[in-house]
Amino acid sequence: MNGNDDDRTAGLWEGVDALCHWLDAHQPVRGREGLLLRVLKLSEEVGEAAQAVIGATGQNPRKGVTHTWQDVEAELCDVALTALVALRTLTPEAPEVFARHLSGVTARSTPPEPAPDGRA
């Protein structure tokens, strides 16, 4: 990661924190139920992403093409942001938790680098 990547990561989590604070200030349901509703919001966002894919591919013959692939991109961003906000709501250590999880998933999902002698 270079300096720009660090800046983007910091900006991402600053944005997530700002969204959490704004949601907390306008949250009609608090406590455990509020947390559960924030996690359930993911289902809504995933549904909107699915709807955008169906619309971008014209899979509903009655409606035809109703979305663009840019709409799908935006919906996927909403899914990612909603997940990060839910994680941040669950723990103030969200950046560290996410970084550890990403590192673990990456480690088990990528092949090991070959050794200098050609062995894995």
Rank of each mutant, 00 (worst) to 15 (best):
G64Q: 01
A83V: 04
D71P: 01
G104H: 14
P28W: 00
D117W: 09
R100D: 14
T110C: 10
E14R: 14
T89F: 09
L40W: 12
A107H: 12
R108Y: 13
V29P: 06
L12M: 08
E73T: 10
L84N: 11
R30C: 08
L42S: 04
A25M: 05
L12N: 01
A83N: 03
G34V: 00
A107T: 13
V16T: 10
A74W: 08
V79L: 06
G55E: 05
E113C: 00
V29T: 10
Q59M: 12
P28G: 05
T91I: 03
Q51R: 15
L19S: 14
V79T: 03
D6K: 13
R119S: 15
H26M: 06
P114A: 08
L12K: 04
W69H: 07
A18T: 04
C77K: 05
R108D: 03
F98L: 15
E96H: 15
G58L: 04
T66Q: 01
F98D: 01
D6V: 14
E14V: 04
Q59Y: 10
W13V: 03
P61H: 03
D5H: 13
A10G: 08
V72E: 00
A50S: 02
H101R: 11
G64A: 01
V72G: 00
V16P: 02
L76M: 13
T110W: 03
D71N: 04
G11C: 05
G34I: 06
R30I: 09
V46P: 02
P112E: 05
S103V: 03
R100F: 06
T9H: 14
R119M: 15
E96W: 11
D117C: 11
D78K: 08
A80H: 01
T57D: 12
D78M: 02
E75A: 11
E93V: 01
S109V: 07
L81Q: 00
